[in-house]
Amino acid sequence: MLKIDGVTRRFGNVTALDDVSLQIEQGEFFALLGPSGCGKTTLLRIVAGFETPDSGRVTLDGEDLLSKAPNRRPISLMFQSYALFPHMTVAKNVAYGLERERLPRQEIKQRVGEVLETVGLSQHASRKPAQLSGGQRQRVALARSIVKRPRLLLLDEPLSALDKKVRADMQLELKRLQHEVGITFVVVTHDQEEAMSLADRIAVFDSGRVCQVDEPVALYERPRSPFVADFVGANNLFHGVASGLEALRSEKFGMLPGTPLTELEADSAALLAVRPENVELADENAARGLAGSVLDVSFYGGVSHISVDVPDHPKPVLAAVQGAASVQAGAKVKVRWNAKDAVIMAVDR
């Protein structure tokens, strides 16, 4: 549906987007994920029409978008700041886009009423944005964007201004809405949990380039580059060289078990990544595993995180266990994992 082809954008000598190509399908909930300054917002603004790329093409159902002014694109953008018009009531804000289409008054009134119903704000139609809470403002912004029935809705960090509890509610709300209205959603976020819980597919950005496009589970379980392994979720990373077997040869720890994701040339630089929930704590006399001592145990309710200091490893190894942990800080343990639970990937030099 939306096709982004070789888009490059430079600001002075900073390259915000470097030859980015993406294809987003009809009805998809797509996330652009990356740290701040990685170019994801620039891409969103190019699609919306507020930035022009230096090169590349953007088409919507085969129709060129770049030659159209922002007000002529069948696309809505929900701004990070929501950008509600402070001098208009909620109803007027929502009606704004429809009034610009010069629709009959009766139809505008009806559609505004419907959409406010959908986002649960019918009671607040005559309030000004300043009189609403953060979550309510966010819903007004959403209502204002979807009431025009755009083909594509872009959301710039839609939940970043909300506190944690409201954010969890709005995540569900967003998914429900996307199902209900059937519009293609593209959301920009730096929060990997948000991206994972919302999106059907995620594109991970790093300094203007797309590192990997995948479904959340695949992204989490099979990161294809060190950046993705490090950025998406918590991970324990070990540097070494490929051994040609189901293991990484590490200078300090010998052979570490893991599954190579691609065919790796023996002795080429590689990285092993193992998720905390796949790390097992064993007795210090266990036959296999890396010896270390427990640094800290933090209890998060459902899970506990145990960080283990392994001599010669730069960062403590993180292990996650269900419920309360049975070990205490200072205990001598060994950390280990199975080859199928760790991935080995190539490191670009």
Partner: peptide
């Protein structure tokens, strides 16, 4: 003034003149 208000207006289908009169001027 928040320039994203003007962008939001453009995004919702208003031309430059309409945006100026309805959004920029009241601000």
């Amino acid at each position: 003034a928040d320039s994203s208000l003007e962008e939001a207006s453009r995004d919702l289908g208003a031309g430059p003149v309409s945006t100026f009169v309805r959004i920029t001027l009241p601000q």
